[in-house]
Simulated scan of single mutants.
Amino acid sequence: MISMEQRVVGRTGQEVSVVGLGTWQLGADWGEVTETDAFAVLDAAVESGVTFFDTADVYGDGRSEQLIGRYLKERADARVFVATKMGRRAEQLPENYVLDNFRAWNDRSRSNLGVDTLDLVQLHCPPTSVYASDAVYDALDTLVAEKRIAAYAVSVETCAEALTAIARPGVASVQIILNPFRLKPLEEVLPAARAAGVGIIARVPLASGLLTGKYTKDTVFAANDHRTYNRHGEAFDQGETFSGIDYETGLAAAAEFAGLVPEGATQAQTALRWIIQQPGVTTVIPGARSVEQARGNGAAAALPPLPQATLDAVRELYDRRLRASVHHRW
């Protein structure tokens, strides 16, 4: 098993690997993944030094959590911190974010994962008003007191939502979209999180695959892949698919990004390395559908830091090609 750099997940006090594993793809919305393949991906991630899995109760309606629970039961030597999420299985109404529902949602996740206490539970991009509700945080504090959860956090769509949550003393971490094609969190969110001791979990790090350089204008995604059915935000927030960037615009930007890749690295690893070295980032959670992807993602942690010239070039590329379409939205 490879040793990877560890960082503290904000107010949890727990250390996790700087590259984690996002497991949305093990549940649904990225095409089919068999249980055998899912276990192979989880195993490859652990062998690569990953000690952080991110899941949600809505991924495959619990399938992702169940697979992780079964895997960790079989792999007793794996010391993995599991962050899950709650709320997206219910109608997205602020009045649904109450203690009784939280208990029921958490009890289901505890059963799926096979644990008494969940390591970290994140509100899963709820309605914006939820982030400012005193009653919601009181309920979350109650879950901690009841030992259903060890800590709580939020997953957000916008920087404004992140800043609202960071101001709350019990919020351990904020999960937010951050990648070379989504730079807005660098301005206020990451500095505020660092000052408050709140962790940052960077999601959608490869802009739904755009930053891998593997796709072209002729690429066809499966019908049950969100890159097909949510291309324009038809099913959920558009920012979750290709970081909200027009696909052809993203392809052009990705072609330029390819020119910034250092020798011996891939485009995906370069994007992950860029995220890891942003001040305030705790961990980045790329998904993986194959053993090769899981190993390649893990290897990004061992790359040397990107030089300032590359960081400047990423900023220039963003400002020139992408800022106008995404910066004002999230």
Rank of each mutant, 00 (worst) to 15 (best):
R79S: 09
Q277G: 12
G20Y: 00
A139M: 05
D107T: 10
Q278S: 02
I177S: 12
S290D: 10
N106G: 11
A193H: 09
A76C: 06
P127D: 05
T282Q: 01
L26H: 06
V46Q: 02
Q267G: 07
L272G: 01
R231V: 15
N112R: 08
A56Y: 03
V130Q: 11
R110F: 04
I177A: 13
V33Q: 02
P286N: 01
N96A: 08
Q6M: 10
F257Q: 07
I201V: 15
N179H: 11
A309K: 12
G287T: 07
A38S: 12
E292P: 06
L317T: 06
P185W: 02
E188R: 14
E234T: 13
V41H: 01
G280P: 03
L99R: 10
R7A: 05
E65H: 04
P94I: 07
F53N: 11
Y131W: 06
Y215M: 05
G244H: 10
G114E: 04
I200A: 10
T283I: 04
Q66N: 13
I276R: 00
L251K: 05
P262Q: 10
V144Y: 03
R88V: 04
D107N: 12
E263Y: 08
T164R: 14
P185H: 01
D54A: 02
V198S: 08
W274E: 04
E161Q: 15
T216W: 02
A162N: 13
Y152L: 09
A207F: 03
D319N: 14
G27A: 08
D43S: 09
